[in-house]
């Protein structure tokens, strides 16, 4: 179970909070899509969940334990239970699909001894399995820069899955993909979500995708939650409210 308790983030030099007073409880098995305009704080929120971003106020709890109280070592252990996929895939160039997927096991390595042990058979077997799950077996030895965008994102998903995660985080995982491929990636995510009983939390810009796959939609605006509910409750009214440009104190905010 993941809890956000009054989480706020103010970036150094930021005139207002990028995330302000977010309180949410997310349960295993939920498929949550986070909607919001550019700059509304979606990425910031996702990054707070696995501790890549430290909240200025409030706290994030994983299984009841606040991340802020954890040592670096404990935080690593939390992170390896949370897979993360990225808009720009963030794969390691010049390495093969297989090698990239195997880097997903690095959370389980702590010292030089492990490094010298390189990858054991069990890890290789797991990697093979997840590569098969994302349907890339025929390309396992291909270098990742020679893949299409959709294939790259499938490698990203495989890398996250090999962690045996309980949570799957996605920061706009389909924003650089075409609609057909986006749909394919989402159905893959849903399939994995069901099979492994994950908690999936994904930022999207495509409301259609969110309504089709999510079990819960959270909409952010200027760092605040303005909607939290079932996809069918997210109607045109909420849609407009989420995406209409906001005029604050009469001045428009330029980014």
């Amino acid at each position: 179970m993941l809890e956000l308790n009054g989480v706020s983030v103010r970036y150094p030099g930021g005139e207002q909070e990028a995330l302000s007073d977010i309180t949410l409880t997310l349960e295993q098995g939920e498929f949550v899509c986070i909607l919001g305009k550019s700059g509304s704080g979606k990425s910031t929120m996702i990054r707070c969940i696995n501790g890549l971003q430290v909240p200025t106020r409030g706290e994030v709890r994983w299984d009841g334990r606040p991340l802020s109280k954890m040592s670096e070592e404990q935080l690593r252990k939390v992170r390896r239970q949370m897979g993360m996929i990225f808009q720009h895939f963030n794969l390691i160039p010049r390495l093969s699909v297989m090698q990239n997927v195997l880097t997903g096991t690095f959370g389980y390595r702590s010292n030089l001894k492990n490094l010298i042990g390189w990858f054991n058979d069990q890890e290789k077997q797991q990697a093979k399995q997840v590569i098969e799950d994302v349907d890339l077996s025929s390309m396992a030895d291909r270098r990742v820069e020679r893949l299409s965008g959709g294939q790259k994102q499938r490698v990203g998903i495989a890398r996250a899955l090999v962690q045996q995660p309980q949570v799957m985080l996605g920061d706009e995982p389909v924003s650089s993909l075409d609609p057909g491929t986006s749909n394919h990636i989402f159905s893959l995510l849903e399939q994995m979500h069901r099979r492994r009983h994950l908690l999936t939390i994904i930022n999207v810009h495509d409301v259609g995708l969110a309504k089709r796959y999510a079990t819960r939609i959270v909409a952010l605006k200027a760092g605040k939650i303005i909607f939290d509910g079932k996809p069918e409750q997210f109607t045109d009214r909420e849609y407009l409210e989420t995406y209409e440009s906001q005029e604050e104190n009469g001045k428009t905010k330029n980014r």
Partner: peptide
């Protein structure tokens, strides 16, 4: 960032 998210040292 991806490696950090994986929980790598």
């Amino acid at each position: 960032e991806a490696m950090k998210a994986v929980g790598s040292k």
